[in-house]
Design a protein around this nucleic acid. Structure first.
Lengths: 337, 337
DNA sequence: CGAGGGGATATGACCGAGCACATCTTGCGG
DNA sequence: CCGCAAGATGTGCTCGGTCATATCCCCTCG
């Protein structure tokens, strides 16, 4: 071996190379003002000459700030979580933070708690929990001491910051749109039990119907998957008097459309369908889907804002940020004839 | 203040509490065999009593292993990258590693290089780069010294490990399937320029046509989005003699289906359509999409396997792992009449 | 011309773990 | 009953930065 285990250069190496003390190198690295221009230049030259790269682990040890944020999420394959995390990551990096992710495949309070502990051990400065199940929300009740946290759709409790989308509002927009078009009532294909979104959308839908004095049909339970929507769609097609369906997400709406099309039911001529999410595909469904648009990106950005505010403050400061959904009318809904 | 800035307990605190040395605590934490059972019990009791949690940052400093892997990816909102990352994260966590993610919104070699540097600075033990653009692949040519890395679909170079899906094979499956059904030739809606997948699928499609001695039509260029597929679909509908279309991904296939349906062209009776990816939605398109299935999950797992092997070995060991796609026949293709 | 002051730089302790090595026990064979 | 090896535990240094503080330098002003 000609190269005797070439160790990566450290601050002391740079200091020697530049003929200064390690402290001066540190000052240069941290843009400290009190460094003479020529010294700075010399140090910088030494840094590039040696290919020095600062060791953030050592830095984190002494500053007690890792500049890393943890994210706990459920099924990052779904469009909603994926988009939210994307927003989180972008915002975090802009603010100079790393993002460490744990994605759970099954949700319960223990799993979430473990994930948070795991991240806390790693020394994250804060966590955002994207796990909108009621059971997961319980894990937020016992956070490691002093760990800043923010939940997405997670909880109604007042001692954890929350960023959420106004699910009820979205569901009302969808339901009212259908009622305004003259439909007697609106059927609902709901999300899986235990999800906050499921409940919010269910409530909003029910409230809108009740406000209008309409009958509230029994909702059909789904699980967000297109297959569940498909099954629900088959049931709906077999029922009498169904003219309007509000699916709790776009994937299920797709399944509904598919089932109706198979049964020869024309959308929107015979049945109108509305979704929720506005995934990129829904504009190109057959027919293009009328849906509720959620701006996940904004949610992700808000999470980071809230979290960083909490971190900078150095103590808990609970906020609740509600993002309003919008409504996108396309061709899957029409006035009743 | 009654609580005088309650510092988190450290190893020394546990040691004192248990009446042993910090080293013994360390041994207990690391499951070192040579610790008497009762000592272990005493230490463990002290740990829970104090709510002690090991500081992995300090540990990383001395072991020079952060047990964190970096992932650089492009647009984690897309189904492919999202699924791959999911697989990566699951496999990494099972192996006891954290995953730190950087998702780029625009790709060029500089961005990728910066992202890798950023992660290297943070002390990751290795990186996987999910950026299947030719330009991004160039960034892999100049990795920080000694940083284990693996690319997904990234490069043909022999000095970086690669895990990829056999794109050509997938494209050939799709094209041959259509030819076998009696179509004279197959049109292609390709992905955006510069992507490895685009090229692989293009090549496979062309090769399959040439092998069969068929004419090779000019491919239509898309950008993976359903909108691009829609535009391509409108063009195809306006052309004569088009009976079979191979779209480079399912989203574009959806756009094609939509355009054809608008123009009153029936699928598969008049035109057959094949996609690529097998996203969860494609089974419920109208009609359900025949497509090439990629197992992203497996790709993610392989990435971690290869990477960990490299890390454990302590030196470079280049591997190339090819995952074979499969073919899913549904209702968007039919024999020509 | 010397005191005073602020900017530039150096020195040493410290963060919280692991590692190498030293030391003290214990058990077992002769 | 001793010697010795293996097992159990402790000691002090180290990782690579930052922080608090000390020191030095040079300039200004009375």
């Amino acid at each position: 071996m000609t190269t005797p285990k070439r160790r990566l250069p450290v601050m002391a190496d740079v200091a020697k190379e530049a003929g200064v003390s390690h402290q001066t190198v540190s000052r240069v690295l941290n843009d400290h003002p009190n460094v003479r221009a020529d010294t700075r230049a010399r140090v910088e030259a030494a840094i590039t000459r040696l290919g020095y790269r600062r060791n953030l682990v050592a830095r984190a040890l002494v500053t007690k700030r890792s500049r890393t944020l943890g994210v706990v999420s459920f099924d990052t394959t779904l469009y909603g979580p994926a988009s939210t995390i994307y927003g989180i990551e972008q915002a975090a990096r802009t603010a100079g933070y790393f993002v460490s992710i744990v994605s759970l495949k099954s949700i319960d309070a223990d799993n979430v708690r473990d994930a948070i502990d795991y991240l806390a051990e790693q020394g994250v400065d804060g966590v955002v929990v994207v796990a909108p199940q009621r059971s997961a929300a319980r894990a937020l009740e016992s956070l490691p001491a002093g760990l800043p946290a923010v939940a997405v759709e997670g909880t109604h409790r007042a001692d954890v910051s929350v960023v959420c989308i106004d699910q009820m509002e979205g569901a009302k927009l969808a339901t009212r749109h259908l009622l305004d078009q003259g439909h007697d009532t609106v059927w609902h294909v709901s999300g899986p039990h235990d999800w906050m979104e499921t409940e919010g959308r269910l409530e909003g839908w029910r409230a809108a119907l009740e406000e209008a004095g309409r009958p509230v049909p029994e909702p059909l339970a789904g699980d967000w998957s297109p297959r569940a929507g498909y099954e629900a769609g088959k049931s709906l097609a077999a029922m009498d008097g169904v003219t309007a369906v509000f699916a709790a997400n776009d994937q299920m709406a797709l399944g509904v459309l598919r089932a109706l099309s198979e049964k020869g039911v024309r959308v929107p001529q015979q049945i109108s369908v509305v979704g929720f999410d506005d995934i990129p595909e829904s504009e190109f469904f057959s027919p293009p889907l009328t849906t509720v648009r959620q701006d996940f990106d904004v949610v992700g950005r808000h999470c980071i804002e809230v979290l960083l505010r909490q971190i900078d403050l150095g103590h808990a400061a609970y906020e609740r940020l509600v993002v309003r959904p919008s409504f996108v009318v396309r061709s899957s809904t029409a006035p009743i004839r």
